[in-house]
């Protein structure tokens, strides 16, 4: 009995050693085993779903029974391109995303600079926590809080519409802009600022020629967050947008209300294309290499 168990243990140890030795000798097998899980995730779940989206966009639905008709058709894209309303909605969405990004940048940069360069290490920790705290609260809660602020008897009283949407989205995504810029500024050695000052450069010139070029990749990283998050949002505009709609709403209406998955997929390729263009433009600036 005990002898058998001991032999089993020995066998298991031997097997383990064998596997370890095999993996040690074969670096490629080791590498592929290490990478298979993340690659499967990236390939199947991430790119796979994008591919499924793209393929679905070329199908149609039987509107009564709700079944997918898996026959190739350009009709969805034809409707998308020929309808004025979709162009208007797409341009509006890009405008909102760009406005949110600019507003967040203007607010986040001085904030991040103060956190990284002016605050004491102790205060720095607290400031990071403060910036992160809003992320602990539910998105819906914050959006509804803004709804109350913006209502005509609220503190701001601006009423609902695109301005309200931009303000709310700017608030929601601000931490995503502050954190990358803060991280970028933290990596910027203080000595460079001192050197710039010693060479006679004043504040603005130091910012323009030293700080900005070195933190630009971080700004780009932040802008990708705020831009893409705003581009895909459909809940905030439902809550504070009054009567306006963005791309996300068109997608949502076609899935939720009409059960027209193919057309929704076709509409959903619009933000994907916009993001690809945006990333390509960013890549040209070389910012992605320095992230």
């Amino acid at each position: 009995m005990t002898a058998g168990a001991a032999m089993g243990d020995a066998q298991a140890t031997g097997l383990r050693r064998g596997v370890a030795a095999f993996l040690h000798r074969h670096a490629r097998v080791r590498l592929s085993l290490l990478l298979s899980a993340p690659l499967a995730w990236l390939g199947l779940a991430y790119l796979g779903s994008l591919a499924a989206l793209f393929v679905t966009a070329f199908w149609s639905t039987d509107t009564f029974t709700g079944d997918l008709v898996k026959v190739f058709t350009w009709a969805n894209f034809h409707d998308l391109v020929s309808g004025d309303v979709y162009r208007t909605v797409a341009l509006r969405s890009v405008g909102v995303a760009a406005a949110v990004t600019v507003i967040d940048l203007v607010i986040a940069f001085p904030m991040a600079f103060a956190m990284a360069k002016l605050a004491s290490p102790r205060a720095q920790r607290w400031l990071v926590i403060l910036v992160l705290t809003p992320l602990w609260a539910s998105y819906l809660l914050k959006a509804y809080a803004w709804r109350v602020l913006l209502s005509s008897d609220g503190i701001l009283g601006w009423g609902y519409g695109l301005t309200a949407t931009i303000a709310t989205l700017s608030y929601l995504w601000l931490p995503y802009m502050i954190l990358p810029i803060y991280a970028g500024l933290e990596r910027l050695p203080n000595a460079l600022l001192d050197a710039s000052g010693d060479l006679g450069a004043r504040g603005w010139r130091t910012f323009r020629t030293v700080v900005w070029p070195l933190t630009f990749p971080a700004v780009v990283a932040g802008s990708i967050f705020t831009f893409s998050l705003s581009l895909g949002d459909y809940i905030t505009v439902k809550i504070v947008g009054g009567k306006s709609q963005l791309i996300g709403n068109v997608v949502y209406d076609n899935i939720g209300a009409a059960n027209n998955l193919p057309f929704a997929a076709a509409v959903a390729t619009v933000p994907v294309v916009i993001m690809l263009v945006y990333l390509a433009a960013v890549r040209r600036t070389g910012a992605l290499e320095n992230l």
């Binding site: 639905t61 309303v85 709609q245 209406d253 209300a257 057309f263």
Partner: peptide, 8 residues
């Protein structure tokens, strides 16, 4: 589905 597009 036509109603949905009209609504958009």
């Amino acid at each position: 589905s036509e109603w949905t597009r009209a609504w958009t």
